[in-house]
């Protein structure tokens, strides 16, 4: 193999005119993190709501929850990304469609919403499983004390369920983080997109993707560590 290693490439100016290749990757990292965090906020809140609905006695709530999960879980993420970005603006009234297309950072907003809705379906399944893993008597005890449905979830079922599902939720968070790379297909200049353009401009394919790989790994390891710390913090004394 006739490859010209050049680890100093990161400190050479990027073809964008300002900053180095390292700056380019860091800006990509910024978008990756922003997309991951914003979409997680949607995924966590919406997913919790949907998951709770699937455990409610009301058949209507259950049906809505189930439909949501099956819809968003079963369409490939890439297709969802295209639906939100290319198809949605054509389906709404023309003024809104035009406004959507001209929105600055449209690919960022789209990615956040798309990932948020997609990951929500997976979070919902975790929340549902968590609640259903609790002894049935917990709900009965809460209701018997006079708590209403909302209070039963808020003060009893969810605090226990979230503790149970903390490890799989960490995986979902990491999946969501890695899935942000799909947004490069709608033009979001996140980390993977930046690594690719670095490779194209500089031809240093190994350096570019090694850097991206290491950055992804470092964020993931940090998340795993933070999750571990959180797990210890919320651990209930006396529980196995």
């Amino acid at each position: 193999m006739n490859y010209n290693w050049n680890w100093g490439i990161f400190f050479e100016p990027s073809p964008e005119g300002v900053g180095t290749y390292a700056d380019m990757l860091l800006s990509g990292l910024g978008w990756t993190l922003a997309t991951a965090l914003c979409s997680w906020i949607i995924a966590f809140s919406l997913g919790s709501l949907i998951g709770v609905m699937r455990t409610m006695p009301s058949p209507v709530a259950q049906a809505v929850g189930t439909s949501y999960v099956e819809l968003f879980r079963n369409i490939p993420l890439l297709v969802q990304m295209f639906l939100w970005f290319y198809v949605l603006p054509e389906m709404v009234p023309e003024v809104i469609g035009t406004w959507l297309k001209q929105l600055p950072n449209a690919s960022f907003y789209t990615a956040v919403i798309c990932l948020g809705f997609f990951t929500a379906s997976r979070v919902a399944e975790q929340v549902r499983a968590g609640i259903q893993s609790l002894p049935r008597g917990q709900r009965a005890a809460a209701i018997a004390l006079g708590l209403n449905t909302w209070q039963t979830y808020r003060y009893v079922l969810l605090p226990i369920a979230y503790r149970v599902i903390l490890p799989p939720m960490t995986s979902e968070f990491l999946n969501n983080l890695k899935n942000t790379s799909v947004a490069l297909t709608i033009g979001l200049l996140e980390l993977t997109a930046r690594a690719r353009s670095m490779q194209e401009f500089s031809s240093q394919v190994f350096e570019s993707f090694t850097a991206a790989t290491i950055i992804y790994l470092l964020i993931s390891l940090t998340v795993v560590m933070l999750a571990g710390a959180l797990e210890r913090r919320v651990a209930v004394p006396g529980s196995r």
Partner: peptide
């Protein structure tokens, strides 16, 4: 239900709350 006390076979204390909080939760919220 708040005026009807119920005791279950498997106790059903809320595991994430201290004994004090188990005793005060419904008093405060209900």
């Amino acid at each position: 239900r708040a005026r009807v006390g119920m005791v279950f076979q498997h106790f059903e204390l809320f595991p994430h709350l201290s004994i004090t909080d188990n005793l005060t939760l419904a008093q405060c919220k209900v």
